[in-house]
Design a protein around this nucleic acid. Structure first.
Length: 176
DNA sequence: ACCCCGATCGTA
DNA sequence: ACGATCGGGGTT
């Protein structure tokens, strides 16, 4: 019920990883929560993916091996947490957009900026191997909740791809 | 050196 | 609908 997710889990098609991460646990320090919303960003052909213009210092981690954190600053104010997916050399990642905290007052961190701000995740936590870290990792919950599939949020290109996956609030309260 | 823009969020 | 706020990346 609390087995740490291994690197092989992330070395798969990003859409599978993004969907399968729903309902799994994220642990960072003393925080533990259930992932409720994800988005996939897949390769140089995805115009919304940061890697679409090739490798840069910022996106270097996306080109690396799967199972590493990719955290960047957005709008000069907020951070976003991603987990790198697929084989080394193929730039792709899953953005963690929602987290339901498993301790009172059971806050639902709905939004990637709010999530990182609450957990105090910053660029200091970029490029961490979350399969080997002792205080930053994911766990299998044994639960695969139902979810909606929609277009990704906050982008101006690549909106034709339905690569956002969300657990509805009603299902969240029913299951957890 | 300069400019544009962004995987957001809170307020109006 | 809009402003805050600043680093990444491209251009001069």
């Amino acid at each position: 019920m609390s087995l740490k997710i291994a690197q092989d889990f992330f070395n798969r098609p990003t859409l599978d990883v993004a969907q399968n991460l729903l309902g799994q646990s994220l642990v960072f320090g003393d925080y533990r929560g259930v992932i409720t919303e994800t988005e996939a960003y897949i390769g140089k052909d995805d115009p919304a993916c940061h890697a679409t213009k090739g490798q840069t210092p910022r996106t270097r981690v996306m080109f690396g091996p799967p199972g590493y954190s990719y955290i960047y600053l957005i709008y000069g104010m907020y951070h976003c947490l991603n987990i790198v997916t697929e084989q080394e050399g193929f730039p792709a990642a899953v953005l963690i957009r929602g987290l339901y905290l498993m301790e009172a007052p059971f806050t639902h961190l709905n939004g990637p900026g709010k999530l990182c701000r609450h957990l105090r995740l910053t660029k200091d936590h970029n490029n961490i191997n979350i399969c080997t870290s002792e205080n930053f990792y994911l766990c299998h919950s044994g639960i695969s909740p139902p979810f909606l599939t929609t277009s990704r949020i906050g982008i101006k290109v690549g909106t034709d791809r339905l690569w956002r996956f969300v657990v509805q609030e009603k299902d969240l309260k029913k299951i957890f």
